[in-house]
Write a protein that binds this DNA or RNA. Structure first.
Lengths: 338, 338
DNA sequence: TTGAAAGCGCTAACAG
DNA sequence: CTGTTAGCGCTTTCAA
């Protein structure tokens, strides 16, 4: 048996399809009694409107896309979950795209997505440039971008306070008694990496021990954190505090330090950034500046769907707070506040 | 400017829409020259076929769904990546659904997905029952299921060798000198948990030290592994080997053991199951029976898309090999093979 | 308040 | 080998 169509419902209810459509979409005037007849017919036939036909006719598919670098990077699953949760709650479905931060791949996704009449896109990817954004704008595809500077007011942005967070990290390391704090920074094409680095610099620049060579590059991954430690310790064997640009590198730092026989936190304290779950499984657990990752995702979805349904398009910037989570990797018994 | 339609192309090329459709879909006969004219017109107009219209007319949307319990469970991102990679490669788009292993939620997703004319579904969720499967079958929605017993030949299954893997784990623990091996088992409603437990039982049942009380329940999560260790050690303080039903519980076990001051691997060796990345970030790193998680995902996608495009529907069962990855958590210097 | 009818853009007989 | 045409199932004017 084929699925019932709007026409079947109309026939059974003795009305026109237009009327059925009206009760379905709750728009236009419908007599209460007529409405009731339609509703009854819908139930009898177990009618379910066909979303594809709706999409064709109405240009709305109830589908959004989430483009991120790589879902298997531990930072993104939680964010994706945030996106999907509110999307589902609001009746939307989400398409997942892994861009690998590769512009070409990203654009190929966008092509496909446009053809599918997707209602909007959330970008948690880094390769999107001005041209792409304009392209989207032209097709007036609602857009929410994560971790971007609000250069234009043509799209919405969700981000968190990287600069402030970095300062928080340094301040904490100083408080637990660190006398020489290094920073492992992430790839500078990422705004987040840059902001965290600036936060670090501004926090330590005036201190007597500061030297630019205390900043070593990392790649935002575990192996990058490990390599950075080797490099760093050969330059500055006396480093006693590490502020890693993200948690993955903090994990790598911890691993490398362990292998070099350096005690954490006694000899070297470590503080990461992001607040991913991984920081709780190491021993010691890693102190980190936590972003509200899930909220970033759920907020992005909320903002996007608002843009989709709203008549007037605003492009707000949402800057979320970060918070320091103190754990074993900086616990030196110097503080008593816990 | 509005996007070009197939009609625009037809007009410009001086042919009918049917012909354009034929070259677009590469089916039916088209004269080489005619084809060339059409292709030229397509390029001139930068024509892109509208996927939604195609879906409505042809019942094929080029979209599949992946229903899993929770993308933020570290087991699933890699699998999702596997699915998405081959889907994208084959021109499909994937919708992500988090079921939380909740039947109601799962079914509500399925409803929505059907309305969207999705081409097929991959289930990595545990709550799907017979009724649901039949329901799918009725709508002849292609289906691939992960980690299921092949009860019926009405759907394809991708799974891995849990029983054998468990035996591998026990054997390894024995080889490194364990004299009393316990098992933390997962929720018995999961086939994987059951199979691994049976594998353990069959491997140790005949050994002199064996007792059923060496099996303690866990929940497949970190905290479950921790609690299990407490329970276990109060019952059997002399346990010197742990086979955890999955890696997350192995991580929990490691953590609990550390807190209790038990040395891993010297006093207690640990072996997990799954092969997720987490096992490499702890110290010591955790020995585990690795499933080819990415391949499970990519294979599932491949199989699903074959079912979608194939005319004859086979329902193969794919059982993938597992492999032991030896790491620090079982390194007792008793073996020399590395 | 309601209905008729014209699409949305494409596919797939069917006829030639 | 190619064109005509009838849908796919719904939304949305425009009239009534």
């Amino acid at each position: 048996m084929l699925l019932a169509t709007i026409r079947d419902v109309a026939k059974l209810a003795g009305v026109s399809v237009a009327t059925v459509s009206r009760v379905l979409n709750k728009n236009g005037y419908v007599n209460k009694e007529t409405e009731q007849k339609v509703i009854t017919a819908i139930q009898q036939l177990q009618y379910e409107p066909n979303a594809v036909a709706r999409g064709l006719a109405g240009k709305r598919t109830g589908t959004i896309a989430l483009i991120l670098p790589d879902i298997s990077n531990p930072f993104f699953p939680e964010m994706a979950r945030g996106v999907e949760d509110v999307a589902h709650q609001l009746g939307y479905t989400v398409i997942l795209c892994n861009s690998d931060d590769h512009g070409v791949k990203e654009r190929s996704y966008i092509e496909v997505l446009k053809k599918k009449y997707i209602d909007g896109i959330i970008f948690a990817s880094n390769t999107l440039d001005e041209t792409d954004v304009e392209e989207m704008q032209k097709n007036d595809l609602p857009l929410v971008i994560l971790d971007r500077a609000p250069i234009q007011d043509t799209f919405s942005v969700v981000r968190s306070k990287n600069y402030e967070g970095a300062q928080l990290a340094v301040k904490h390391l100083l408080e637990v008694g660190c006398k020489r704090i290094a920073h492992i920074y992430g790839p500078q094409e990422f705004l987040t990496a840059k902001e965290r680095m600036t936060g670090y610099e501004d926090a330590v620049r005036h201190l007597p021990w500061y030297s630019p060579s205390l900043m070593v590059p990392g790649n935002f991954r575990i192996d990058g954190g490990m390599k950075a430690i080797e490099q760093l310790l050969s330059r500055h064997p006396d480093v006693d505090g590490i502020f890693a640009g993200n948690d993955l590198m903090a994990v790598g730092a911890l691993k490398a330090l362990y292998r070099l026989g350096k005690k954490v936190p006694e000899e070297v304290a470590i503080c990461g950034f992001d607040g991913i779950a991984l920081t709780e499984i190491t021993e010691p657990e890693i102190t980190t500046v936590a972003q509200p990752i899930y909220e970033m995702g759920s907020l992005a979805a909320k903002v996007l769907i608002e843009k989709i349904t709203a008549t007037v398009k605003a492009n707000p910037i949402h800057e979320l707070e970060v918070s320091l989570i103190r754990r074993g990797s900086t616990k030196r018994g110097r503080e008593t506040d816990e």
